[in-house]
Design a protein around this nucleic acid. Structure first.
Length: 619
RNA sequence: GGUUGUAUAGCUCAAUUGGAUAGAGCAUCUGACUACGAAUCAGAAGGUUUAAGGUUCGACUCCUUAUACGACCA
């Protein structure tokens, strides 16, 4: 009751963090008290902002720590002396402070159990999934996946897709309106390569007749093109033609370029084939997207945006911020921005990548009026994205400043970089099958799945396999290049997705048992007097959820959430082994531990949900 | 050549953004299942944070230089 009243009292000042209310309020109490202590003991006024409270390290007693070094100058005393004096005053005057200790310049404050129970009460009173407002952007477009339509998705795309989906979910959790967008690169020379090869070697094959997913079928012809193209180059070189000229004059390449021109001219036959093959690819992509659990609110196609891009180039010419070279190509000079001159439109009037990017940025703004537009693109495009933003600024577009490149590192294999030519690309569909297989093997060996039907089992393997894969790819800081070790990615023990899923399944088992035993569902634990250390730790951990979401949203880093979910699961597992639940005699304590377990499960479910990972009721 | 990113335990990753004895997992070694799920838990061992300087009460974190690897722009 007391907790609720106090929450009401602070509500007008802090409408933001309802979820965090308990801890935030506790920290606020401590800060105010510290200010009062400084006034009383040292006759000093200290601004609240200069008081930094951090969680106490595990090895020391206490929950919050004040670093006293910054106060030494103003107070004219040593750090330990300050810590002792402030701690003594707090202990004497503030009920929430049960005790303190000073180590060097660190004042560790020990908090009364009653305070933690209040925090827990506030957590229980907060419905799952309550938004965590952060003052960040409110209308956001997250563009991710953005595949080419000439090959199936691979491991690199998976990092992209998981990151994009997760960042979108994290931003949603802050209360923002988020649109997930996919810009499909459906035109250009690479598509024509697949089409040419299909015409030559396809013999009218369809996904059905070939027994292949559409994207894999198209990819097959792309590979065939590259193979025969290389042979043609070799042939020409044997005839004495220089390599760079051979590359341009190989008959296959000439054909592909002819086809691209025919496409731009709207040639009926070419368009028909293009529609047909892209249709197959989209079916394939959609199957993969559904399988890996990502979704999109809006699809853009470069074939539908490049013309608008050309208009923007024209606009830039008229405004005089772009210029034309003698051969008729259009450029923008970004040397003042620390970049180079950049080609915007070729001499023959055909567009380049950035041409369509200009159009797409505008379309997205028209459609959604974003205050933040996030592009999930690998870091090899850093320069390109700088150019895009600088060019839009030159055009005076109001949305230029809202563009944000979520730049992530490439995924390496133990054997080195993935290279399609060397056949070292890890196919997304195959990889998912492998992780499911590994999950199945582990479940058959040690799972507790009595009563599950075949369909539920298949679903379980999928949940666990994808859980392992997603967690593996998301736990690493996005901006860092990462190593993909196939053996480690299917591991189910230690710092992995299934470890966290296991904790959830375990709690589910406890909840089932609690219902069966008729354990009371109480939310009022004000009569409890003391907490075990692991219980207090767990409450503090659970209360950190809102702060974690805010941090993850600020840094656009799902890794922050992944680390948190793992820490919560770890804390719970320790609590679980140290503290009895059903063997507890005191019914109130028993009810409390069941409620604490349930809240932990809920927090795990929501946190993993932000990563796109499901939780199983049993495994 | 120019711009830029990264460098932490044998391996893969953390470190609350300048705070305490740099933490996890894997691998190695030891212990705990007829108490609620051992896909778990407890413990041991493992570090000159690439190198050398600098800034300060305090540096993995900031500055300078160098080295290695990567990306992009020519």
């Amino acid at each position: 009751m007391a907790a609720q009243n106090q929450r009401k009292a602070t509500a007008p000042a802090l409408p933001a963090c309802r979820t965090f209310a308990g801890v935030q309020q506790l920290e606020q109490t401590l800060k105010t008290a510290l200010q009062a202590a400084a006034q009383a003991v040292f006759n000093q006024d200290i601004p609240a902002a200069s008081l930094v409270l951090q969680p106490t390290r595990k090895d020391f007693a206490g929950s919050f720590t004040l670093v006293t070094f910054p106060l030494t100058k103003a107070f004219g005393k040593g750090p330990e002396q300050i810590g002792q004096a402030l701690g003594e005053w707090l202990k004497a005057h503030v009920p929430a402070v049960r005790g303190y200790n000073v180590v060097k310049g660190f004042l560790n404050l020990e908090i009364a159990d009653a305070e933690w129970l209040q925090v827990f009460g506030a957590l229980l009173a907060t419905p799952a999934g309550t938004p965590v407002p952060t003052g960040g952007p409110q209308r956001v477009v997250v563009e991710y996946s953005s595949p080419n339509t000439n090959k199936p998705l691979h491991l690199g795309h998976l990092r992209n897709n998981f990151l994009g989906y997760s960042v979108a979910e994290i931003l949603k959790a802050t209360g923002a309106t988020v649109t997930k967008a996919n810009l499909v690169n459906d035109r250009g020379i690479h598509i024509c390569k697949s089409m040419i090869a299909y015409q030559r070697y396809g013999a009218g094959a369809t996904p059905e007749s070939a027994g292949l997913k559409g994207d894999h079928l198209a990819g097959k012809y792309y590979v065939l093109f590259e193979k025969h193209y290389r042979e043609e180059i070799k042939q020409l070189e044997a005839e004495g033609v220089a390599n760079d000229i051979a590359k341009k004059q190989a008959p296959l390449m000439l054909e592909a370029q002819q086809m691209l021109q025919a496409w731009e001219a709207g040639d009926e036959e070419v368009m028909a084939l293009w529609h047909r093959m892209n249709g197959w690819v989209y079916d394939g992509f959609n199957a993969t997207y559904q399988n890996i659990g990502v979704d999109f609110d809006k699809f853009y196609y470069e074939s539908g945006t490049y013309l608008l891009g050309k208009e923007r180039v024209e606009e830039g010419l008229q405004k005089g911020v772009f210029f034309k070279k003698e051969n008729g190509s259009v450029w923008v000079d970004l040397q003042a921005e620390g970049l180079d001159e950049k080609l915007l439109l070729r001499a023959d009037g055909t567009s380049v990548y950035i041409t369509q990017d200009l159009g797409t940025a505008e379309l997205k703004y028209q459609d959604f009026g974003y205050d933040s537009s996030i592009y999930v693109i690998a870091d090899e495009q850093n320069y390109h994205m700088q150019v895009l933003q600088a060019t839009l600024k030159k055009l005076g577009k109001p949305y230029a400043a809202a563009i944000h490149h979520l730049s992530y590192g490439m995924v390496d294999l133990p054997s080195g970089k993935m290279k399609s030519r060397e056949g070292t690309v890890v196919d997304a569909d195959e990889l998912v099958l492998e992780v499911e297989e590994a999950a199945k093997a582990a479940t058959l060996e040690k799972g507790k799945t009595e009563g599950l039907g075949d369909e539920e089992l298949t679903q379980l393997y999928h949940t666990l396999g994808l859980g392992a894969l997603k967690y593996y790819l998301l736990k690493v800081d996005p901006k860092k290049r990462m190593l993909f070790n196939p053996e480690e990615s299917v591991r189910l023990e230690g710092d992995t997705g299934p470890f966290i899923q296991y904790s959830y399944a375990r709690i589910s088992s406890i909840r089932r048992k609690a219902v069966a035993q008729g354990v009371a569902e109480t939310t009022d634990f004000s009569q409890l007097t003391e907490l075990q250390a692991t219980e207090q730790e767990l409450i503090q951990q659970l209360a950190g959820y809102a702060g974690v979401v805010a941090e993850a949203a600020r840094t656009l880093s799902p890794a922050v959430v992944a680390q948190y979910a793992y820490d919560v699961a770890k804390s719970y597992n320790r609590f679980y082994t140290e503290v009895p639940i059903f063997a507890e005699i005191d019914p109130l304590k028993k009810a409390f531990r069941v409620a604490l377990s349930a809240k932990t499960a809920e927090t795990i479910k929501i946190s993993l949900g932000l990563l796109g990972i499901d939780v199983p009721e049993r495994m």
